[in-house]
Structures are given as C-alpha cells and as structure tokens.
Simulated scan of single mutants.
Amino acid sequence: MGLLSLPIILSAVLAAAVEPPKGHPWLAPGPNDYRGPCPMLNTLSNHNFLPHDGRNITKNKVVSAMSSALNFNESLAALMFEMAIVANPEPNATFFTLDQLNVHNVLEHDGSLSRTDAFFGSNHIFNETIFNETKVYWTGEILDANMLANSKIARQLNSKAFNPTYRFTSSVESFSLGEVSAPIVAFGDLQAVTVNRTLVEYFFENERFPTELGWSTRKEVVNIEDILRLSQAISDASNLITTDKEVVSTQRRDLHGGLY
C-alpha cells in the first residue's frame, strides 16, 4: 500500500546507497528488473531481501525476507507467499515474479492508496497525484486507524465515481484492509494502532526502509493474530454508520453535570 518532501539536509545522504537494515543496502531497480503494485515487496527487492530483479520469488525466499526485514513469524510469512503465488498462472507453480502481480483483478485492484486504476494507465508505478489524494486524509503527524480508513474510503469513492470499470469485491476488501494496515505492521505501534506519518510517506515515495529517519526492524515477532486485529481496526474505522452510544453518554454527563 510519491510522498512527503523530506528535509533538504537529508538529500545528500539519501543519494547514496545505505544499509537499512544492516547488510542490505538500498539499490534502485534497473531497466530489466521487475517491480509490482505492492510497495513492500518492491522495497524488499530494492534492499535485496528478495531477488533484486524481482524474479524467482520462492516460499523460502519470502519467509526469509519477511523474517529478516520485518520480524514476521514463519507461518505468517508462508501465508503471504500462498496469497501471492496465485498470480503465477502456471499450474503447481513454486515461485512468482513481481511482474505477475501487475495483472489487474488478480491481486492488484482498483482504489489503491498510491497507484492509479488500471483503466487510467499504469497500475503498479507509484503515482504522486493519487498519493496526494490519499494524504489529504492523514491529518496528523501520527496516523491512526481512522485516518488510514478515511483515505481508503476516499480512494474507493473516487475510483467508483470516475472509473467506469470499477470493481471491488469482498475478497478485494479483505486484501485492502490488510494493505492499509501494513504501514502500522511495518513501522508503527501494534498495540496503539498508530504509525509515524513521516515514516509512511518516506516508505511509499522511495520504496525504501526509513532507517535514515530512525526506523529499525521491530524486536517483537509479528504473527497472524496481529494482522487480523489491525485489519479489523481498519475495518471498524471504515464503517460510516455511527451509533447513538456516544450521544447518549454525552447527554447523561450534561444532565448529571447540571447543564440542563
């Protein structure tokens, strides 16, 4: 799941290859390297946790990359591979390429936070205009589930309004919730369900781990329960229907406070 303008003082540092995390310097993709619609998989390839050319991505490589870079446990990383392998059309495939993920409406979908819909052009290259639309709803320096959910809803609404081929199934919704919560998983506070906006913007814009900004791989292991809980938090925040509980509670406080 183009971005923030970083302080000028960092420009010289960012121009050179660095080592975030240790032993995995960032290297921009070359003209013959594959990249896809997922910023995190692209980032893992740019840091050579996954093959830098974006080819021959096997289960073992995904498990190793997710564990080393993000501290995912093995079963969660294996699940990520199983979700991606469907993009390879070959029967009984044991690997996928990042280019295969670009096929529209397999895993890639409309309403991305950082890519334009396939109907309008490239569905996998970072689009600054689209990302600027997303950032409008990130109204604080610390992003929470509500801000991320608002940007998700807005992108879907924009896509539905202007894309005549708009498609967003219940399966896509499940993927989308996981994608929108991914910045918290990678860079944020799993318990508070928050993440520093600067880290997220830097990541999307550069497809690079934000080590220069102080990030490091989390020490606690991430498991499937964490992903499900965060996805549910985004889902709850995406609900546009409110209840009367807050209103009733406020009225009771006012009455007991002697304001009426």
Rank of each mutant, 00 (worst) to 15 (best):
V106K: 00
G214T: 08
E173Q: 12
I142M: 12
S151H: 06
F96D: 00
M40L: 14
T169S: 07
A87W: 10
L157Q: 07
A182E: 06
T94N: 02
L70W: 15
S170T: 05
S238C: 07
H124T: 01
N42A: 13
S170G: 06
N223V: 15
N132L: 11
N132S: 09
S231P: 07
R252A: 02
R208Y: 11
I184N: 02
H109W: 03
K245E: 01
Q191H: 09
L41Q: 09
E141F: 11
R197I: 10
S45N: 12
R253M: 05
P39D: 03
E133F: 05
M83A: 13
L199A: 06
N206S: 12
T217H: 04
V13K: 03
V63R: 04
L259W: 02
Q100Y: 11
A87C: 13
V172M: 10
L107P: 00
N123Q: 10
L240H: 07
A15P: 06
D53F: 08
A233V: 09
L4G: 04
N102C: 12
I8R: 02
N146K: 12
V200I: 10
T169I: 04
V62S: 04
N60H: 15
N102Q: 11
T139G: 13
L44A: 09
D33F: 14
S176K: 00
S181P: 05
L6Q: 10
T194W: 11
L41C: 12
N146M: 13
R252C: 03
F95W: 07
S5H: 05
N32Y: 06
L190S: 01
T97E: 10
N102Y: 04
E74F: 14
M40E: 00
A93M: 11
R55Q: 13
E74V: 12
E19Q: 11
V222W: 09
N60L: 09
S238E: 10
T134A: 11
D117E: 12
I130G: 03
D254Y: 09
Q191I: 10
L177Q: 05
A17C: 01
R208H: 14
H256D: 06
G111S: 00
R55I: 08
L143F: 15
M80A: 15
K61G: 13
S112L: 13
A186P: 06
H124R: 05
N105K: 04
V200K: 00
M40P: 05
F95P: 15
S176D: 15
P210G: 05
E128R: 04
D144V: 13
T116I: 09
E82A: 03
S238K: 06
D99I: 07
A161E: 07
L3Y: 13
T97F: 01
A84E: 10
K135R: 09
I142P: 01
D236R: 08
P25V: 00
V18K: 09
H47W: 05
M83V: 14
F204D: 01
